[in-house]
């Protein structure tokens, strides 16, 4: 057995982690209101990014309209609180339940036939919900829906909840990745034919991936409803989906710290939009899309996919040779 050596790289990781933790603890105490808000937004996108990462990065089902699950979670919470007058826990559960139902349909369609049909089913169902949420009277139409004030939390509490959600999603991603389920997901992404020939049920695992990812996004959506206290159908907007994809694409698809690194883009975007006059607002989306195209074409593996972040490749044959030489000596 070879023991794990404490390398220089590990100490750099530890230092970065400690600095990050110190900053995240300092922010709610010493930061301004605006910075706390940006922090909450960043955590929201990190958690959503992990959800997308699980579905698209790990299991290879390309989710183009991830705002669907997020929006349903948000509406589950806000409808329950504002219209039915129940408590946040019920709202959270209703959001998750609705999401599981939708995810089941999406998964059924998407797993029946390959890739493009999954995307199509998602786009179709997303359009249904987007249109209905903007038109029905119960959702308040485009004016939106506002939550009763009794559930309003302070910025610091919201910040802590958001941080907890982001950390929890990251841990959940790692747990799933290292479990048997995660191995199955990766196998289905890398080589579906081989996985099927080895006896794994492709449909079952793909539907499971959609279900887990939808649940994760739903929790974040419910939190968003509590955080904003009022929202309209724009939670289904394509820009949300685009940002989720951006966060993962820039950071690194399928990498656990991909969304954490990629969320720097959200911070950048918030500050740029704050500084820019409003008539150039549409140009910020152009910049986003350009970054997306360039990253997808030139660096599809993202920042965390770079060589310096990869663990050193250990050649098995070299170890065997070493052992053989030790024996002969």
């Amino acid at each position: 057995m070879r023991s794990v050596k404490w390398t220089k790289r590990n100490s750099i990781y530890l230092a970065v982690l400690l600095a990050l933790a110190a900053f995240l603890i300092y922010l709610p105490i010493g930061g301004s209101r605006r910075n706390i808000n940006i922090g909450i937004l960043v955590f929201i996108y990190i958690a959503l990014g992990q959800s997308w990462n699980l579905l698209s990065g790990m299991s290879g089902l390309f989710s183009i309209a991830h705002a669907l699950f997020y929006g349903i979670g948000a509406y589950g919470m806000s409808l329950m609180l504002a219209r039915a007058g129940s408590n946040p826990l019920v709202g959270l559960l209703v959001g998750i339940g609705a999401n599981l139902l939708v995810a089941l349909i999406v998964g059924m369609v998407g797993s029946k036939l390959s890739g493009l049909y999954f995307t199509m089913a998602l786009i179709g169902i997303h359009s249904i919900f987007y249109t209905l949420a903007g038109q029905l009277t119960i959702t308040g139409g485009w004016l939106g829906i506002s939550l009763p004030r009794e559930w309003q939390l302070t910025r610091k509490e919201l910040y802590i909840i958001a941080l907890a959600i982001a950390v929890f999603m990251t841990v959940l991603f790692q747990v799933i990745r290292s479990s048997r389920i995660g191995t199955m997901f990766v196998a289905l992404k890398e080589n579906p034919q081989l996985a099927a020939s080895l006896g794994s049920d492709i449909r079952k695992w793909r539907i499971l991936a959609v279900l887990i990812s939808a649940t994760m996004a739903s929790v974040v959506g419910s939190f968003y409803a509590i955080y904003m206290m009022a929202h309209n159908a724009e939670v289904f907007n394509g820009t949300v989906s685009l940002r989720i994809m951006m966060v993962c694409m820039v950071g690194g698809v399928g990498h656990i710290f991909g969304p954490w690194v990629g969320s720097a883009l959200i911070i950048m975007d918030e500050y740029i939009r704050g500084a820019m006059p409003t008539e150039f607002a549409s140009l910020s989306v152009v910049i986003y899309a350009l970054v997306l195209i360039v990253m997808a074409l030139l660096r599809p593996q993202g920042i965390m996919g770079s060589k310096i972040f990869q663990p050193k490749e250990v050649d098995v044959r070299a170890i065997e040779n070493l052992d053989a030489r030790e024996k002969t000596e």
């Binding site: 390309f62 183009i64 995307t119 394509g238 685009l242 994809m245 694409m249 989306v285 152009v286 986003y288 899309a289 350009l290 997306l292 195209i293 997808a296 074409l297």
Partner: peptide, 10 residues
């Protein structure tokens, strides 16, 4: 899909 979606937004 990603690139053409980006192009669409542009």
């Amino acid at each position: 899909i990603l690139c053409t979606m980006g192009l669409q937004l542009i």
